[in-house]
Design a binder for these strands. Structure first.
Lengths: 165, 165
DNA sequence: TATTGTTATACTCTATAACTATA
DNA sequence: TATAGTTATAGAGTATAACAATA
């Protein structure tokens, strides 16, 4: 079965046969898939009253382990969004009672963002649904394909400068 | 070499050993990579005074072949953005003199968007740089890995409802 | 001087809906 | 009634820069 990029590559082959546009077959699909997957992920989030940004913040705090606390700078590095977006996300999460902001002990400039009991309960409840949703999204791939895909994506990420922490 | 998702999966293994979060290894990497690749693509666009949305419109018109004309609805389907975004993109492209909007002959409600000579020259010039940039982004993969990646992504896209045209 | 977090600006996009002109 | 395109609203993100407090 053909996808949209099959159509696009066909058009380019006809219009610009001088150009090798095969890279588009990878990058174009990457872009479209990321969009479609994003839409699918929202379904599980909204079932818990969350959106992507909120889930991202709560999950990052959750997986950091007890006491479920990080600085805004740490959340920024993990989420790949700008500092302004982090401030706004935290404003909303704080208003909902899911996180607290307290001055850092060790750094007078710093702030520590921590999950409240309500925030912890929420992310603990949303997490299994999110993981099940991701499994559903990947259901068309074999175990081997999934492993191979993860490894190829990692190779690309490392080459583009992605790093742990 | 480790990437960010190696770190994330490690944290989840420690915090929620009851959950199989391996799907995150695929979907998380997909999301981060799409973001990083997007940033890299902008470099080639901005060298020609374009942004992602503008390049997207011009390239879609270009590959449709002579007379390089499509309806806003056609551009919307190809680009996966909302109708409001299309209207705004076309407003900007029209103001720059790169596309024209003329009433459709066959449908009184319709509009035909067409590349101007300037728009055609611009996209023809930008295209080889864009393709070279995509090749650079994928340089860390072998030919076989690229082909396999494209095929796996296509499989996922088709399963999620992506289709030609 | 540099860093932390917040605030501000202008812009692009989202989702949703209303609106017109036409089919 | 439905469709094509535009317009409008509120909200979340971008990039960039400025800012106060602290290191």
């Amino acid at each position: 079965m053909a996808d949209h990029l099959d159509f696009v590559l066909d058009q380019w082959a006809r219009e610009r046969p001088d150009l090798d546009v095969s890279a588009m077959g990878v990058i174009g699909r990457l872009s479209r898939l990321s969009r479609l997957v994003g839409t699918e992920l929202e379904k599980a989030f909204s079932a818990h009253g969350l959106d992507r940004g909120a889930f991202d913040m709560l999950a990052t705090l959750r997986r950091s382990g007890p006491p479920f606390a990080l600085t805004p700078a740490g959340l920024m590095r993990a989420s790949m969004v700008t500092s302004g977006a982090i401030t706004q996300r935290l404003d909303r999460l704080e208003a909902r009672g899911w996180v607290t902001r307290t001055p850092s002990d060790s750094d007078g400039r710093g702030v520590v963002v921590a999950l409240t009991d309500e925030g912890l309960a929420l992310i603990n409840a949303a997490l299994p649904d999110h993981v099940a949703n991701e499994e559903r999204i990947l259901a068309s791939l074999s175990t081997e394909q999934r492993a191979q895909l993860a490894e190829t994506l990692r190779q690309l990420l490392v080459a583009l400068g992605d790093s742990p922490a």
